[in-house]
């Protein structure tokens, strides 16, 4: 540890020397790593936005519960309290006869004139129940068996399809992340091998002078990590621009999409890409260093 602390400056200057020793190749490696990490960032953005949309939809996963006695307000109030106590039920809201009609008018928009054909309000009071989507099946069974409930209408199919799409996207994302990770590891380990090859005489001399493997290898790990983090920083720069322009376009054209807060998303993506790039840099460098062991001292 003492030796490490005494040599921090040396390690940094050696790492910079390794980076400068093959400037063109390392430049392209950094750009390549940056582009790969940009792809990773895009996947992470997709995940974050997708998660937010699914979460918003889940929160809006409402079930309509129709009652055997929709005219009996006391019974409706009792039932409201009863349903609120069920596990998996997040909120129960009573919708009166008039409110039900207003909702339908809103939904129909210009076509709502059709409701004028009725002499009386054709709608009944009902209960809107917001539930936890993960417990949908269970909650539906419970609701159907509650005394006073005539019929339960759900939007399960739509919600489940949306969940399937979100899960599918996550699976694709996992494969992309694996591919991105592997590619970055290969690029960085190759870069480090190249650095080791360029400095083989120096490495051999240090070995003959008794330098430990960690002392010899650390500048290379530092160089690999620095280059990957620089690549990560480039990726973050592009991602911030993309997120910014994406939000500007979407918020104008599709205002109803429940996007996460832009600043939160940018901070989250930046920290994730930076962490992943540092991790991949260290791992790639260590893989590259493994080749040193095969050299004869």
């Amino acid at each position: 540890m003492k030796t490490f602390l005494y040599n921090i400056g040396y390690f940094l200057s050696e790492a910079m020397r390794t980076i400068r020793s093959n400037p063109l190749s390392n430049f392209f490696s950094v750009i390549g790593t940056g582009l790969i990490l940009f792809l990773l960032g895009i996947v992470l953005v997709g995940w974050s936005v997708g998660d937010q949309i699914v979460m918003a939809l889940e929160q809006e996963a409402e079930i309509s519960v129709y009652l055997t006695n929709p005219e009996d307000q006391v019974k409706i109030d009792e039932l409201t309290l009863q349903l609120q106590k069920l596990e998996g039920v997040l909120e129960v809201r009573s919708v009166g006869k008039e409110q039900a009609k207003e909702q339908m008018e809103k939904l129909l928009g210009n076509e709502s004139e059709i409701l004028g054909l009725f002499d009386e309000n054709p709608f009944e009071a009902f209960l809107e129940v917001r539930i936890n989507l993960g417990q949908m099946e269970e909650v539906l069974n419970k609701l159907q068996n509650v005394n006073g409930v005539e019929y339960v209408r759900d939007n399960r199919e739509v919600l489940e399809q949306m969940k399937q799409i979100a899960d599918g996207l996550k699976l694709i994302g996992v494969f992309i992340i694996l591919a991105v990770g592997m590619t970055t590891l290969i690029i960085i380990s190759h870069m480090i091998r190249q650095g080791i090859y360029n400095n083989r005489e120096q490495i051999n001399t240090l070995r003959l002078l008794g330098a430990p493997g960690t002392f010899i290898g650390f500048p290379f790990v530092l160089a690999g990590t620095l280059m990957t983090v620089i690549g990560g920083a480039i990726a973050i720069g592009f991602l911030l621009v993309i997120i910014n322009s994406g939000y500007q376009q979407l918020s104008g054209a599709l205002p109803f999409i429940p996007l996460p807060v832009q600043e939160w998303l940018q901070a989250r993506i930046s920290s994730m890409v930076l962490t992943v790039s540092a991790f991949l840099g260290v791992m790639g460098s260590l893989f590259g260093l493994a080749s040193m062991r095969n050299d004869k001292s």
Binding site: N7, R17, T205, L208
Partner: peptide
């Protein structure tokens, strides 16, 4: 060791070369 072909490290000064052999000795 004083090697026949010296094994000095190019791109470094004389002082840096001498210090290179001492850096991992905990001085």
């Amino acid at each position: 060791p004083v090697f026949q072909e010296f094994k000095l490290i190019d791109g470094r000064t004389a002082l840096e070369n001498v210090m290179m052999g001492m850096r991992f000795l905990g001085i």
